[in-house]
Design a protein around this nucleic acid. Structure first.
Lengths: 181, 181
DNA sequence: GTCTATACACCGATAGAC
DNA sequence: GTCTATCGGTGTATAGAC
């Protein structure tokens, strides 16, 4: 089992139980590794495991989202590619966003800086795409924020209502919505 | 100090640290009451305290939101009243939604049923208002879901980016946006 | 690398004085 | 009603065998 696979298991647990709610026992069960074995891979313990999880999400953002937004394509097509990728990543809405779970669950702002950074990268990349379709910088930025905010809200609704329809609806209409002026 | 005031202190802590992240020590400090004293007011312990917190939010929903949506007023005016009330309740976006914090943080779905119920009440009341402006039942329901989803997403963004502008923008435009066809 | 065994702190909860 | 004192359980983390 590769380290990447281990981290994927960790992510699953963190997403479901939040940072405070995930215990080493749960991480043990999810990975199939003993508690002490987890410390071999992550000597600094639970916090390092969460950091590794966030690292992997950062890589996802870069390789599965930001690259798409830089493609030599029309703005509309790039946004459609992004929607599809987001939908896949969140399993059509059946899974939660680690950023949201950590941001809302961690009162000590342990991971605030990096979550802030990741969200900002995404918003700025989106704003650039929207700008390139001829929309002004300020409304483009606002539309980019709207996109992220709708995705996050839809995921919250999906989890609270056990209904993924709003999430899929949001992702479907997003590309056109972000470009209309 | 009244029980209502005590519960308000509990809510503050739960909102900041999530269910798993709030400890009795923190609740003690926030209320000024000793741990054992808290058990006098809430014999079943932490879970009962969280239930009491959710009870108070339920009362807020009824008395500060749902009543407004039932006023003998135009749809637009009712939605504007709601926006204003929501903005006040969440301190212009500086505070989090207990439903979101509990829904995302609690992996065991301890409070899922009641959060689901509260959100559904809100969505249905909104859909009714939108319907009464002449919009069909299905799009009205979707618009109502959009409203909640945008509010929730905006609160997540506010907490992650420490920026309440998107939240205030969402609430400002929501009344008109929900009624255009 | 993975395990068993264990240390130690903190958490939720209770007993009982006042 | 509020307090001090304390219990049992669980959580994170570590030592050391294999």
């Amino acid at each position: 089992m590769s380290k990447e696979q281990i981290i994927s298991c960790l992510i699953e647990v963190f997403r479901r139980y939040g940072y405070e709610g995930t215990t080493l026992v749960r991480l043990s069960q999810a990975t199939g590794l003993n508690k002490a074995s987890l410390y071999y891979h992550f000597p600094k313990g639970k916090e390092e495991m969460a950091e590794a999880a966030l690292d992997q999400i950062d890589r996802w953002l870069e390789t599965e989202i930001l690259v798409l937004l830089r493609q030599p394509e029309t703005s509309l097509r790039r946004l459609r590619l992004m929607s599809k990728s987001v939908e896949q990543f969140f399993k059509e809405g059946k899974t939660s966003c680690l950023w949201a779970v950590f941001a809302l669950g961690d009162g000590d702002d342990l991971f605030h800086a990096r979550i802030h950074r990741a969200l900002t990268l995404w918003i700025e990349a989106l704003a650039k795409v929207i700008t390139e379709s001829g929309i002004g910088a300020v409304p483009a930025r606002e539309k980019a924020e709207d996109a992220i905010l709708q995705i996050q809200g839809a995921l919250m609704l999906a989890r609270s209502l056990k209904n993924t329809e709003p999430f899929q609806r949001v992702l479907k209409r997003l590309p056109e919505e972000l470009l209309n002026s």
